[in-house]
Design a protein around this nucleic acid. Structure first.
Lengths: 213, 213
DNA sequence: CCGCTCTCGGTACCCGGTTATCGATTCTAC
DNA sequence: GTAGAATCGATAACCGGGTACCGAGAGCGG
């Protein structure tokens, strides 16, 4: 499945939640389509791929869609995940509610700053990074989030992988080197900002062109 | 230009910086291609679109590529940008060095928490959000970053747009409602985490299947 | 009860992004 | 200087995601 398609499914899910909160029980393909900037055909194909059936003149049952898309994304489970690096970004992530929404259960925080170890963030204790491998092995944690500087990331990843972690959500601006089979999802914040810069430049060009005509 | 293409250009740029740091002066299309997971053909077409010329048996001059890609993304400029919301996420963004790398100059921080107003983060004072419109108008700021809760985002956006902001980098989990012509780049952190969840589920399925054979 | 409309499900088509191919060019080696 | 290898630039072929279209089924109105 391609990135665009996956993103469409996630957006469907967000829209469905919104519609459900508005009291809706069903939704038509065209409704989802216009909000996503695609055609009803595309939406119907997407849903058909999940073996979701709708009814003519009625649409799709929102509850069905939510369950099937959620299960495809496997966000109904609660995979334990550890967060390494309790800086500002780390704290922001701990305090957010994205973990459960995406099928994860944040169970451990690690840092190597003595000033932080022992403190508590959102009810979770900050543990000494020196105890990281042991905790991860004992708890069978297979996912980890890296919220630390680029120069420290690779060393931590090596330790995590040795301890059994097989999936990484990486905020460090670095291409991590991992063995085959280990998943790395890079969250490149700066790419969003670069994309914004490009879009601004493009709009300014277009504006200049159209005013010239 | 499509999102994938834009992302490729950004990745080229990151790779080029890395290669330059390694002392390289030129790079071949195939080298860039393998690191991007595409073919040399695609890379040559991308670069050709920017009117970049290479030399047979030698490749492309890294310095040329950097300048031309950077100027296409308009990240050589220093567009002033304001950051609203000095929570953990906001502080993390202030302390990062992504702004200059993406063609922005972070010039103002705003929050409405009296405990924060007047404090200084990375040398920048936190200003009272009540003074936001005036400052933005006076300084001619046209870009802003939203690092605040979803329920407060829309109201702030309305004020920012009224004050002259025309481009937004939004971290709040909400679909902002803006007039036509205003650019909104949403940085949906949870989508990255959902994508990770999906990739884990897919790998586990694949593993189960292959061990079954 | 009978048409009418709306929306789904499936199929065919289209378009653009990606790859493959080939001639042209430049550097290396002898 | 010439042969050969490597790499570019351009074009053609391919492929898959997206759209358009059409027949089928479900509700609505008279």
């Amino acid at each position: 499945m391609h990135r665009e398609t996956l993103q469409r499914y996630m957006n469907y899910l967000l829209l469905l939640t919104k519609l459900k909160n508005e009291g809706r029980a069903t939704v038509t393909s065209d409704e989802l389509a216009v909000r996503e900037g695609v055609t009803g055909s595309r939406v119907r194909q997407d849903l058909s791929a999940l073996r979701i059936l709708g009814k003519p003149r009625q649409g799709y049952r929102i509850a069905d869609l939510e369950i099937l898309i959620s299960s495809m994304l496997d966000i109904l489970s609660a995979k334990p995940v550890a967060l390494v690096g309790i800086g500002n970004l780390g704290r922001a992530l701990v305090l957010s509610d994205i973990w459960s929404h995406a099928g994860f259960d944040l169970v451990a925080l690690f840092d190597n700053d003595p000033a932080l170890i022992g403190a508590s963030v959102a009810g979770l204790p900050v543990r000494d990074a020196a105890t990281m491998e042991r905790f991860i092995q004992e708890q069978g944690i297979e996912s980890a989030c890296l919220a630390l500087p680029a120069d420290k990331a690779q060393a931590v990843v090596d330790r995590l992988v040795d301890a059994g972690v097989r999936a990484l959500w990486n905020f460090a601006l670095i291409d991590l080197d991992v063995p085959a089979g280990i998943i790395v999802e890079n969250q490149r914040l700066e790419q969003g900002l670069m994309a914004l810069s490009f879009r601004i430049a493009k709009r300014n060009q277009d504006d200049a062109r159209s005013s010239q005509d």
